[in-house]
Nucleic acid binder design. Sequence first.
DNA 1: ATACATCTTGGAGCCGACTCCAAGTCAAAC
DNA 2: GTTTGACTTGGAGTCGGCTCCAAGATGTAT
Lengths: 170, 170
Amino acid sequence: MAEQTFTIKQAAEQTGISEDTIRFYEKIMLLPQAERKENGHRVYRKEDIYRIKLISCLKKTGMPLEAMRPFLAASADNASAEYPELVDQLRSHRENIVNQISSLQQIVDFIDIKLEEGRPRKASSDQSQDEVLEDHKEIEQIKPISVVEMSYFPAYAKMDKLPTGRLTEE
Amino acid sequence: MAEQTFTIKQAAEQTGISEDTIRFYEKIMLLPQAERKENGHRVYRKEDIYRIKLISCLKKTGMPLEAMRPFLAASADNASAEYPELVDQLRSHRENIVNQISSLQQIVDFIDIKLEEGRPRKASSDQSQDEVLEDHKEIEQIKPISVVEMSYFPAYAKMDKLPTGRLTEE
DNA sequence: ATACATCTTGGAGCCGACTCCAAGTCAAAC
DNA sequence: GTTTGACTTGGAGTCGGCTCCAAGATGTAT
């Protein structure tokens, strides 16, 4: 049952990352050297596709490619998280991401307020626009300091179940 | 009780955005032309500071500067959300951000698994490394929509730098 | 009045992340 | 056997987002 393989084009289609970009990632070694067919064409397997998707996912979060390396190392190497250096980096990334989530959450709140505000005859509002703005002031009060503390969810707890269910096998 | 004002330097300190960058944002009209003192120096008020912080916040989420414009318009103009076009944009942004949050959440989960995994003594793990990897496959399985299709903004990039704090005073 | 600090401007330069060639290889299709 | 198509390479170009000058104005401290 030969494992399914893909061309670079298919990989691009599946991941939403262009062929050029995939080659570029290989060049800068964000991706390992792809296997080749006899004719020199690159061959991708599902793990490779996965890795590209992971990069894409990280990219969307605004993470620079360089910052992804430890991440991808952890992804690729099963035992990787044992290296203290790597563990630190992962922790640090985690913190950043949690911060980002909270920034994003605040923006969602902000948008919701704006949308609500723009709905003229809802009338129920007890918030004046000034108050709303005032609220937003807090956005940054909170942020400069580690948002981890404001814990949208227990940082270290078993994070089995979180609002946006996923990752748990379906 | 004259409203409190700030120099560009103070604005930079308060927002974590460099003076150069603040001027740059003004140049590209992401920020309005700042008021000036007699000597031509820029003057900032708390609303301005807030706006800069908002930009900074959005930036951290990976939003390109150009994409911020409608957003900032909504922020600046109280009645803004009435314009249907803008409302749509905001909704669309909102959706995107929610997706992003869920992507980020997955990454946090991923890191947590890796960190957990790297803690050998714990031994309690019922997850083999293969299973873990298998799980991660689901990242895209579960969120076929969010992770890959999420490309609402063509390509997000750049998050604020962590180690290279140039203007970050100690 | 001389030094400094803080601002101003315009513009050049830089870096990350692509993106787009041009020229070439190889395999199958006509 | 030549055309078509999917690939290969290396390298150049682009674009967003800063970042860093240099030259100059103004203000305060000595």
